[in-house]
Design a protein around this nucleic acid. Sequence first.
DNA 1: GGTTGACCTGGTACCGGTTTCATAAATTAT
DNA 2: ATAATTTATGAAACCGGTACCAGGTCAACC
Lengths: 312, 312
Amino acid sequence: MTNIHDIARLSGYSVSTVSRVINHQKYVADDKRAKVEKIMHDLDYVPNRLARDLSKGRTKTIGVVLPYANHPYFARVVDGIVMAAFEAGYKITLLPTNYDMTVERQYLDQLRSKAYDALIFTSRSSQLETLERYRKYGQIVCCEDPGDDRPLAAAYTDRLGSFVSALNWAKQSGYEKMGVVLSRNNVISASTRMTRQAYERVYGHLEDRDLFTGAVKYEDGYRAGAYFAKLTPAVDAVFANGDDIAAGVHQYYLDHQLTPLPVIGQENLLSSRLLKFSTIDHHLEALGQAAFRLATAQSTTHELIKSDFIKR
Amino acid sequence: MTNIHDIARLSGYSVSTVSRVINHQKYVADDKRAKVEKIMHDLDYVPNRLARDLSKGRTKTIGVVLPYANHPYFARVVDGIVMAAFEAGYKITLLPTNYDMTVERQYLDQLRSKAYDALIFTSRSSQLETLERYRKYGQIVCCEDPGDDRPLAAAYTDRLGSFVSALNWAKQSGYEKMGVVLSRNNVISASTRMTRQAYERVYGHLEDRDLFTGAVKYEDGYRAGAYFAKLTPAVDAVFANGDDIAAGVHQYYLDHQLTPLPVIGQENLLSSRLLKFSTIDHHLEALGQAAFRLATAQSTTHELIKSDFIKR
DNA sequence: GGTTGACCTGGTACCGGTTTCATAAATTAT
DNA sequence: ATAATTTATGAAACCGGTACCAGGTCAACC
């Protein structure tokens, strides 16, 4: 493989000069520049990116931590990140965790090892304190509100506000008893925390029996539908953590000739449009774009993306 | 930033020994190994990945070329790739092209510059010849059948076979006139080529007026629905290049109180299950996994993933 | 007792670039 | 005419590792 020294030797100039030509810097005589460029072209030479990155100490690569790739939420966020990164000439590496803290830690160590300039956590299993400890090795962006006193950059949607809007609307629509579907029932998940908080604000204490957890996709929603269909006292409507999950709940009732249960979903996916139920659009592409911007900045700014409640 | 030389100096041993400790090689005395490990730990040392990769000449990173990230087809393929890569300790970088050949060329040049060990083309705009020319700089996998005599690795679904099955079923079901929806109406797209081929085999010549092109998402399908609703002579059914697009066609007819038009989609997405129309499951995750395996091998093997036609 | 081979260690070239610094010539300013 | 810049170029250190090779110790084997 031909390298910069070969070009230097063959052209008769120094590597410094060749480097200047490669990087389009000034202070190279026109004739020499032309000659070096010709030789580079003739030898089919391309500078080695690794050597460059090592020398410069940055990779122009950002790692995106997510549980798994094939989920509408993450797909939309990633799309926003990838688009913004493309515009800015950055590369995006996907880092799946499957919610494994150990794996997350490995990615944080890769940040330490300079494999990425920054990490974006679209979801996390580790404590925020853990992320903060790695802050000194590179920029870290998380996609939730980490609280004011935390030295982390953050881009997040207005979960609490939009959840409260949605639930208020549900209450005013006459749904007295509201069921809830969540993914992870733990305190790490911002979505879970905000849902509970909004629920308490609007409906008061959330009874365990009105809550179905462990739902990440349509089939889980279908199972949730089966659960709620048998529940007494019955719920009047269900607030789910995603449109496809809400669609599952809805479809279970349809498939079993029950009176359709009103559902509220999230993300404004195709399923909510097809089945015409209300949803919250979190503008996840915008979230991704914001997250990318923060990843390339060095601040610890927080950026709020407004969500829209879509009544159907 | 502390490096291997610091560790060597502070421990009193050579960089060779430290390197051996880092890489868990034998031929290091236990006491020295312990001392070096302690110093590495105390100094919070992590070896620099870039330096390592440069020295080794490989990155354990694979670039995945796709038009854009937020599309169910690519999301599923990428998911398969990412999972397989995770298992194998590889990293995946997403390379969006927006169908721009110039951008594709840039990614090929990045392969040349050793930024990736391999490239997977889930879609392409360039000619196959172009990809072949870059084969010598690294492994290249494409997700379509490149033909037997081409020196490219390939993983692809049985498009032609499954399309013929689907269209045969449609014909036998009494749909005499079949409309078709496609994305790109050019010869580069394997999906387009195979659809036309299957159509000719089952229905004969595809009339231009029975073809709607430029469809990549639901809204496009809806527009296609509007087109077919006005078409005379009308079509009896529509074969679309994706479930969400088929859903759009279907939904247009529903929304306008027309007799629902039978549609056949692809990918077995949620929309086809909700609206209960037939579809083809191309097992895209399996496709992604196969593509990854080929990317890390050095062969130019072809791998066919069987598709399933799902009648509904 | 000498040869063999496993074990241990360090020196150093190498991967392929960037960047600082020194030097000198050509311009420009005073 | 001289001082101060600007332009042009190369030598060499540096980024932070890996890997080959040489050299030395020590037990086993013939």
